[in-house]
Design a protein around this nucleic acid. Structure first.
Length: 611
RNA sequence: GGUCCCAUAGCUCAGUUGGAUAGAGCAUCUUCCUUCUAAGAAGGCGGUCGUUGGUUCGAAUCCAACUGGGAUCACCA
């Protein structure tokens, strides 16, 4: 049973039975909205009576009084009420709480089969192959991964995809620098093995070397009197990189071989990072295979009159009716621009998977691009256009300001993941107090990885994606307060209690009966709180899915963990003399533990048996 | 200049569809471990919700203008 839903129905009944037969016009029942009662008042839920005052022409407090009286008399859910101004505060009966918990546990034990849900595609990560992943990618990746899990839990059939930007001038820059500077004294070329670097880091190193060489040349040309932007184009290394891109596009064997070699190293590097972070994809698209797509979409648009052509042959669309501008979709020389490929890739993704919804997890600097893309798809009459959604997120700033790759202030993803594990290990030294003595070194390492990553993921996911966020390195690995490790800790506590219970022969999957809370031994306030929050899980999950918002789930799991911790501090479980209460609390603990595990799982965060 | 996003406690952030005296965490100050994990709990301190108007029984929330910050408006991706 769902306490809130049942109470809502009871209130609707109360309104109907009290007021429909009165001489005044029957009030439109409308949506009855409940809110949690504020802590300073008695009650679990509060019904606001103000909206009824007008149709009933009665004072809000009077309505509250009559509704409350009716509820106590007629609904077994309601045990008491009080009215403050127009607010009807409703207390629930202990039997309602116990039924709610039993219902929750019964539902928890059912395996929900989500076989044939609506198809949704989530594209995220989408890195360039010329440098390693960094903190900004991590926000993207964790978001995409978590949203995918949340949608799957909501019954969708989710396809996680990654569009790798594996071609273009950026990778040619790395390739050129590698050719120029990659030869070792012994004549061989550097490899990840010989350099002792992950492949993506090795290629990133050459990208930096290219940039250095280019800057030096620009400085030289500027000193000779050339304008800086012109110098950037005229610099020989830049021209050579452009030449390399032309060769690649012509399929020059040597260039393609080099490109394949470097990209292979980068993919191996990415794979390692994803694996460490617990991320996987169902399908990877490569831009080298899709960048020529989209030209036929341009043709189609021209034929349909959606696009128009200028004298120089360039193709445009007029989106002023949508509040946007005129947008170029194909260059005058017939080559693609960014959006041309996206037109083709979007069609390709749809024809591959027939998703009725499609999400792009991409930074908010591309808000305009996606507005244009979706508007075009709609004009072209694509049936999936309405299901397209840009899950936009803000930049991650450092305490020192913006991350800038050119200034070397970028936080590397691999370094960060290693570092958070190291800090978690340090925290354990101070806090574990022998709890981990029986752990092997391997188990400890895995635990610290789990905690470090839990801290990092939670830190990045608890914030509303739309907002720009500040990454404070110290807070990101904090294990106290509103953090991932705090929640992991509560889970470990619960597991510890349940292990001890099992050792004493107690089971935790039974249901509690009402003898756990006879009239003279009512439920503890903290027990009621925890049961109420458990009952909100389904709603939190649904809302997180509706709004693509892992932050809702992050907040929910925290609230639950916090409420349980309060209970843990205030009542005893195993040393409670009343066996029925012990049973109830064990059931409650098991239900909370499972819900934490599941909720954290939806954030891509694992929880430990001990910590 | 046009368009879009953001602004809540010293700091970092919550705040469903408008509801009571706006909530957490960090920092700081007090308490509480011979008892189920103190990586914890309880409490104190801390706010003109950027500003000004408007809508209404009621606005952090909706509307308008303004201020501050960011992004974008490329035949770059």
């Amino acid at each position: 049973m769902d306490l809130q839903a049942d109470l809502t129905r009871a209130i609707q009944q109360a309104i109907q039975s009290l007021y429909t037969d009165s001489s005044t016009a029957a009030p439109e029942p409308g949506p009855v909205l409940l809110q949690p009662t504020k802590k300073e008042f008695a009650g679990a839920f509060t019904y606001v009576t103000f909206p009824l005052t007008k149709p009933l022409r009665l004072a809000p407090a009077e309505i509250g009084q009559r509704l409350g009286t009716w509820l106590v008399a007629n609904s077994p859910l309601v045990s008491a009420f009080n009215v403050v101004q127009g607010f009807l505060n409703i207390s629930l009966s202990d039997s309602a709480y116990i039924q709610s918990l039993n219902g929750f546990m019964a539902k928890q034990q059912q395996r929900v089969e989500t076989t044939d849900g609506e198809r949704v595609m989530v594209e995220f990560s989408s890195p360039n192959t010329n440098k390693p992943l960094h903190l900004g990618h991590l926000r993207n990746i964790f978001l995409g991964d978590s949203v995918s899990r949340i949608l799957a839990e909501n019954g969708y059939t989710v396809t996680k995809t990654c569009l790798v930007n594996d071609r273009g001038i950026h990778i040619c820059k790395s390739m050129l620098a590698y050719q120029k500077f990659g030869q070792q004294p012994d004549g061989t070329f550097e490899t990840p093995q010989s350099a002792g670097l992950k492949g993506d880091h090795l290629i990133g190193k050459y990208y930096v070397l290219f940039d250095k060489a280019l800057k030096a040349k620009i400085a030289e040309l500027v000193a000779g009197g050339m304008a800086e932007d012109e110098a950037a184009k005229k610099a020989p290394v830049m021209q050579q990189a452009q030449e390399m891109l032309r060769k690649w596009e012509q399929g020059d064997a040597e260039t393609v071989a080099l490109w394949e070699q470097l990209n292979a190293w980068v993919y191996a590097g990415f794979a390692e990072t994803y694996q460490k972070a617990g991320i996987s994809f169902d399908k990877t698209y490569y831009e080298s295979q899709t960048y020529l797509l989209g030209k036929d979409v341009v043709e189609e648009g021209l034929a349909k009159g959606v696009f128009y052509q200028k004298e120089d042959k360039s193709v445009w669309i007029d989106l002023t009716a949508e509040g946007l501008d005129h947008k170029l979709v194909l260059r005058g020389d017939g080559t693609s621009v960014y959006i041309t490929q996206d037109l083709g890739t979007t069609d390709l993704k749809f024809s591959d998977y027939h998703s009725t919804r499609s999400l792009w997890v991409v930074g908010n600097e591309q808000d305009y691009h996606f507005k244009v893309l979706f508007a075009i798809m709609k004009r072209l009459g694509r049936p999936y256009a309405d299901g397209c959604y840009h899950l936009s997120y803000g930049m991650v700033d450092l305490p020192t300001g913006k991350m800038k790759s050119r200034e070397g202030t970028v936080v590397d993803a691999d370094d960060l993941i290693d570092e958070v594990a190291a800090v978690a290990a340090q925290a354990a030294d101070e806090a574990a107090k022998g709890k981990l003595d029986e752990f092997t070194e391997v188990e400890k390492k895995d635990l610290f990885r789990m905690i470090g990553l839990g801290a990092l993921k939670y830190y990045l996911l608890k914030v509303d994606p739309q907002k720009r966020m500040l990454f404070n390195p110290e807070e990101s690995v904090d294990v106290h307060g509103h953090t991932g490790p705090f929640i992991q800790y509560v889970y470990a506590r619960i597991r510890s209690v349940l292990r001890k219970a099992e050792e004493s022969g107690l089971v935790t999957n039974g249901t509690a009966d009402e003898t756990a809370a006879p009239a003279d031994h009512p439920l503890h306030e903290t027990e009621r709180d925890v049961i109420l929050i458990l009952g909100q899980y389904a709603q939190a999950l649904a809302l997180a899915g509706r709004d693509y918002a892992p932050s809702y789930m992050a907040q929910y799991v925290y609230d639950l963990a916090k409420a349980y911790n309060r209970l843990f501090a205030e009542v005893s479980i195993l040393s409670e003399p009343d066996a029925a209460k012990t049973q109830l609390r064990l059931n409650l603990s098991a239900a909370v533990g499972e819900t934490i595990r599941k909720g954290m799982g939806l954030l891509g965060i694992e929880v430990p048996e001990k910590m």
